[in-house]
């Protein structure tokens, strides 16, 4: 069957079977490989994308459910201010080693920082609990997110 969905701002028509996962369709049919698959069970968070602006696990969605919806991946069109701030802070704070978990974390917090401009560390930690990272021990990730949040507030205050 053919479904029509918006991916990174572009309307795409894709031929899928009903049992195809969104993560597979993004990666294999649309060549958007920034969305990583670490468990296919909704636990690791590596596959997190935005669906209509909200974080969702692409491995838990069937592609057919996306008919008429908008999906944003890390490759995304023009990056949001949140994503730009996160990228800069992740680089400075060495918040990724192998980088496999990183796209899911960036997408999760691009939405979180947008919706919680005044977030505190406890809130960040609570949300980050949904993403597994085997390399960093999480400390630098928390520091980077807090730094990105502070940088965004500074920009907003100017």
């Amino acid at each position: 069957m053919i479904i029509s969905l918006t991916v990174n701002g572009e309307v795409r028509d894709v031929a899928v079977e009903p049992h195809y996962l969104l993560s597979d369709v993004l990666r294999d049919r649309l060549d958007l490989t920034a969305t990583h698959v670490g468990c296919e069970q909704g636990i690791c968070g590596a596959c997190t994308v935005l669906v209509d602006g909200q974080p969702a696990r692409a491995c838990l969605l069937f592609a057919v459910q996306m008919e008429g919806h908008a999906v944003t991946t890390l490759e995304g069109g023009a990056p949001s201010v949140e994503l730009r701030a996160l990228r800069a802070a992740f680089h400075t704070h060495h918040a990724q080693q192998c980088g496999f978990c990183t796209p899911g974390i960036l997408m999760t917090f691009a939405a979180y920082l947008r919706d919680h401009p005044d977030c505190d560390e406890a809130g960040v930690r609570a949300v980050l609990g949904g993403n597994l990272c085997r390399c960093t021990g999480y400390g630098p990730i928390v520091r980077a997110i807090m730094a990105a949040s502070a940088a965004l507030r500074e920009v907003a205050d100017v």
Partner: peptide, 21 residues
């Protein structure tokens, strides 16, 4: 020095085995 690897990882441009067509 912050890592030069980071750019591709943060931009979603890294290439892990399963990303290679």
């Amino acid at each position: 020095r912050p890592r030069r690897e980071d750019h591709r990882l943060l931009a979603g441009l890294a290439r892990y085995v399963d990303d290679i067509k």
